[in-house]
């Protein structure tokens, strides 16, 4: 394993499968009577969140605490960031406090890379979402969820047909998923209105379609993306009703899925826009399970990055 987790493309097939296998074993322990493991006792994990988050922050916090790490939560609101402190000064402060890992979410794409490459922080940097760039831990928990349902929790995802639908342009989840799923051998199709497909997408390891109904019967895992209103400074589609009609998941489209297909959403959901309440709460939906799986996967990430010797400790 590498020292940081910045991009899903950093992971080799072996790395990715190791994380998923480790998560599988940890899930078995945590689902059983063991609620806390001593593995990261004495290590400090900082949640450095410049952007709002519910699931990711709580999930990383729960994961770190179940491994007995100390957790410091930092949110931009109510900190010196609102007085104008730079990322660098905040990072140096965290370093001075002895953070072994910094989990960072930032609205600027590349913030996690900056933090890792600058040498401001000696510990591991884990990207928990940087702008519209990447969100690798979400991709890992999505892959984990797919593997559990479609591959009995073993091996890679070779041949699994994944369809990712919606606001790909603003989605770090989509980019990380495409990269990771390609590494794991899945066939990924992106479906979105042409205005919500990013430039350069033809170089991504996936197919593009503009017709959801055509792709649905050939889908094993259907991932609906949130329409990211807060990042839309432009008109990308005529109306929300028209978006829903073309790219929203309703009961009729759920019925068009094959019998074993699963419905996923990284959350938070816009019910009634990209996904109907019936589809979100239906039998096919694994959306709540994704959240539970997030804790196991993040435990695996923290264990593999922090549980062993650091690079300095091995070389000394």
């Amino acid at each position: 394993m590498k020292r940081h987790l910045l991009s899903a493309s950093d992971l080799t097939l072996e790395d990715a499968v190791l994380i998923l296998d480790t998560a599988e074993e940890l899930a078995k322990l945590v689902d059983g009577p063991v609620k806390k493991l001593p593995t990261l006792r004495g290590r400090t994990v900082v949640n450095l969140f410049y952007e709002d988050s519910t699931r990711t922050r709580i999930s990383f916090e729960a994961a770190a605490k179940r491994l007995s790490a100390d957790v410091i939560n930092f949110t931009a609101k109510g900190s010196s960031v609102s007085k104008g402190e730079s990322l660098k000064d905040t990072a140096l402060t965290l370093q001075a406090m002895g953070a072994d890992a910094v989990i960072v979410r930032h609205s600027a794409s590349g913030a996690a890379h900056q933090l890792a490459a600058s040498g401001w922080i000696a510990g591991s940097v884990i990207n928990a979402g940087d702008g519209t760039h990447e969100h690798p831990s979400q991709a890992l928990l999505d892959a984990y969820t797919m593997r559990r349902h479609l591959r009995d929790g073993k091996g890679d995802l070779a041949g699994v047909r994944v369809t990712i639908v919606g606001d790909v342009l603003h989605s770090r989840v989509a980019r990380s998923n495409v990269l990771l799923l390609a590494t794991l051998g899945a066939d990924v199709t992106l479906v979105a209105p042409p205005t919500l497909i990013p430039y350069g997408v033809e170089q991504w390891p996936c197919q593009i379609s503009y017709d959801l109904d055509k792709v649905l019967p050939r889908t094993d895992a259907l991932m609906m993306l949130r329409v990211q209103g807060e990042r839309m400074n432009n008109a990308f589609f005529p109306s929300t009703r028209e978006y829903s009609r073309g790219y929203g998941l309703d009961d009729k489209r759920v019925a068009a899925l094959s019998s074993k297909a699963i419905v996923m959403h990284p959350g938070p959901m816009n019910r009634g826009l990209e996904i109907s309440a019936g589809a979100a709460d239906g039998l096919r939906s694994v959306i709540v399970e994704q959240v539970a799986n997030g804790v196991s996967v993040r435990m695996a990430i923290l264990y593999l990055l922090l549980g062993g010797a650091s690079i300095e400790e091995v070389s000394s």
Partner: peptide, 10 residues
Amino acid sequence: LRSRPARALL
């Protein structure tokens, strides 16, 4: 644990 890189779980 800290004397070697993290090991895979069994």
